[in-house]
Design a protein around this nucleic acid. Structure first.
Lengths: 205, 205
DNA sequence: AATCATTGCTAACACATGTTAGTATATTAT
DNA sequence: ATAATATACTAACATGTGTTAGCAATGATT
């Protein structure tokens, strides 16, 4: 018996106000997070999107472009938030706490992108690579400056500010483990625990 | 004019009491750290060692074996140290501080291996992968148990112990940034700063 | 219904990868 | 010196990679 299958061509499904490119970038985020940028192949990505590998190139320029989009998307959000925080008239501890809260929220709500931006930026190529590294350095400098101001007016313990920044940023990166954990406490509890330990450890009392 | 070069065959240079395999594993550590496991090729490694790619296989079984050696080498050191700490009769804060100190020392003195083991273990393949993940889980559980004991006898603030472990371990991972930093404070100062913030943030006072 | 722009498909490319076979050259032991 | 072992080399393999060319199907516009 002969059976004819009427196959219709695959199509990337989109919702209102999202381009097909955005769908691809988003799937790329979770794939890069899972396997790492180098280990994730365009054929893997194509399968996740539900299409053949070559078809992706109707929407994107290259694999690296996907990494650009992810890294700079995240970097921009953090930079804008830093602008906001700096312009506020609150004390240093409050500023630090707000920065920490923002980081935690980003890590909880935009897990994949933030994680990828954090771990895989090394694979950017050079006009972008230096740019990204600069942004990172700047962000940390500004963060450290806030802590230093707090040390000067005795709000914060006399510690090495760059070290504190380093600790805080990496500690938050640990939410990765929480995210994958089976028995996770709820997000609010996690946040308040982290604030207690991280900000509490800075306070001069 | 005709010039004859008398080339002698390359050879992996070794020092007293180190096998050629150890040299390879060590070079692999810094290469994997720099580029990531997937992005580092056996030809890259061969060049770093000063030999042709195929020659490496006189000493090792496969690329993955290099990752095994690195990951389990590190994991074993941490596990043994945990055994030691648990068997001591000191209070909880002292135990936590000793664990933290050990981590920092390992990160400072065996930077490349620890870093690789931490970031690249995902690329292990399966009998080894599960084994490694189990060891990791166990280590964290035991660390959390020590903190929980400290909470029960009021040495330590009433926080979520797994979260605290997560923060501590990842914060120490931040030494990576310090390591690459141009203007680094000295190791002792770094250690004392980290202890102040991390252990200080736990103490009940 | 006809036209045009999107978006998909198949096939293929050039290249890099981990690894093996077979052989030559060092080093060590007899 | 000779034999045996360890270590290196060249050449090649099979496979996986990102990407392009050319064409077919679909959707939107007129």
């Amino acid at each position: 018996m002969l059976v004819y299958y009427l196959r219709t061509m695959a199509r990337i499904k989109i919702e209102k106000n999202t381009s097909r490119k955005e769908v691809i970038v988003s799937k790329a985020a979770s794939l890069f997070r899972e396997k790492g940028f180098k280990a994730a192949s365009m054929r893997d990505l194509a399968e996740a999107v539900g299409v053949e590998a070559a078809s992706l190139y109707n929407h994107i320029k290259s694999k690296t472009e996907l990494l650009h989009e992810l890294c700079f998307g995240v970097a921009n959000r953090f930079m804008h938030h830093m602008d906001e925080v700096e312009s506020k008239k609150t004390n240093s501890i409050a500023k630090v706490e707000e920065l920490v809260r923002f980081h935690i929220n980003e890590m909880i709500n935009h897990y994949e992108e933030v994680y990828v931006s954090d771990r895989e930026w090394k694979h950017l190529s050079d006009p972008y690579l230096s740019n990204f590294q600069n942004q990172r350095r700047m962000y940390r400098k500004r963060f450290a400056a806030i802590i230093e101001a707090g040390i000067r007016n005795k709000e914060i313990k006399a510690i090495d500010a760059p070290t504190a920044v380093l600790i805080i940023l990496h500690a938050i990166g640990g939410i990765e483990s929480w995210h994958r954990s089976t028995q996770k406490i709820d997000a609010a509890a996690l946040t308040s625990n982290m604030i207690t330990i991280l900000v509490g450890g800075l306070k001069n009392d």
